[in-house]
Design a protein around this nucleic acid. Sequence first.
RNA 1: GGGGCAGUAGGGUAGCCUGGUCCAUCCUAGAGCGUUUGGGACGCUUUGACCCCAGUUCGAAUCUGGGCUGCCCCA
Length: 477
Amino acid sequence: MAEETEGLPPKSDFSAWYNEVIRSAEIMDVRYPVKGLYVWYPFGFALRQHTYTYLRSLLNRDHEECLFPLLIPETSLATEGEHVKGFEDEVYWVTHGGLSPLDVKLALRPTSETAIYPMYSLWVRSHADLPLKLYQVVNTFRYETKHTRPLIRLREITSFMESHTVHTDWDDANKQVEYELGLSLEFYKTLGVPVIISKRPDWDKFPGADFTMAIDAVMPDGRTLQIGTVHHLGSHFSKAFNITYEDINGEQQFASQTCFGISERCIAAVIGVHGDDKGLVLPATVAPTQVVIIPIIVGKRGEEILSAVKVLEEELKGAGLRVKTDTRDMRPGAKYYHWELHGVPLRVELGPRDLDAGQLVCVNRLGVKTTIPRENAAESVARLLQEAHDKILEKAENNLEAHIKNAASVEEANAMLEGNVVAVHWCGDKACADKLEELTNSALLGTEVRSQYITDDEGCCVICGKPGRKAIIGRSY
RNA sequence: GGGGCAGUAGGGUAGCCUGGUCCAUCCUAGAGCGUUUGGGACGCUUUGACCCCAGUUCGAAUCUGGGCUGCCCCA
């Protein structure tokens, strides 16, 4: 597939590092001849599979998976005014069937509210049908005009998990918002990616929502990456699409709704947050290969080593681990570099010395070497994987903490903004936000911030001096 | 949204300014054979490229225009 070159750009040159690691670690091939569309390599696809299998398992606790069509008639897309306005400049249109122009143009879904809700209107009849909680994992299309980037800014989002729920009232929907934020936290904790949750300012919320809660990761260059959103839709869409139910008193009521999305940006976050100068660092939870076994074949004992390695592989697989044995005809060192580039959490070496001593040499992706007894190897290996995971999460948390600053004034914020996310007090007025953004050359990302590194206390707006709450500002992808 | 730069084997590059010296340089990778294998092996043989479309010219990788694609910087 993709060929490796010796040495990546240093991760401190994040943009160059990211492009090169995406290619040489075989996540995606960016050479597909349409702007903003990329090809998943088998290795990248396997990473996606493991990640989304886990995401599905979380959702399946209280949602059901379903699948809606890709094409949305113009008439449905236009049903909710605010929503269509928010997306009109980035919709791809299907205008012809063969050579005949279509009477009603069909949109490639930029998101699926307007595909799903006409059906919800048919499905929801009574309070007994509620809550209704469905999700799907699909591709969506957005005609991005900004600089596209694999996994981060795409014209075809290939892996959009979107959840759409319907509730009897606003409060019940709000509980769902909190529940889904909790799910997101659990998901990202498993990926070892620490996040900041905040409420997007009104002018930046999802078109047609009451409010939007956003989940952001911080990339190594200090720019934030929005890796999840949960929207409280109130009854905007239920009124537009006539999603009503009969309540216990026999009266028709408009339902309240939420939607929630996570895309392949979650994989960009894993890559960006954990990777190092040698390449990917994958958490064992989603790594396509968790353990790679390298036979050290020296002199005449090759056969003996290979059969010992085979037994070990079966034993580890039997314990439920994803194991690969690298028997290629290469120097061991070349294999080490290869698997480090691919982020494999643990390498197990087995050579003549180990065979004689009844031991295995294990090296985790952070470079820590441990010698374990060959007896009960699966148990020891599982423990080492867990330790490695704890370590990368800890590293990621320390890194996030280092990139979050609290500032008491615009001057202080400006001094800290290079490579960081900064928290300041803000009164909530749009005019002050505009001024703050202008003075700091950054964007106001959100308020009502939930992060262990930011205290959401009261204070004076750094622009006007009126009382306000913390808001985070920074540059984002 | 605005500006800049670039496109040469699978990846990275030299050549471009000043058209002919180029059946295009070097590194890496791929294929075959052999010797090797505890941190990127070596030898021999071999495969493979000037983004697309026009134009200028006796002649274009090189100059001009357009398209497509990529990257960087600023808002």
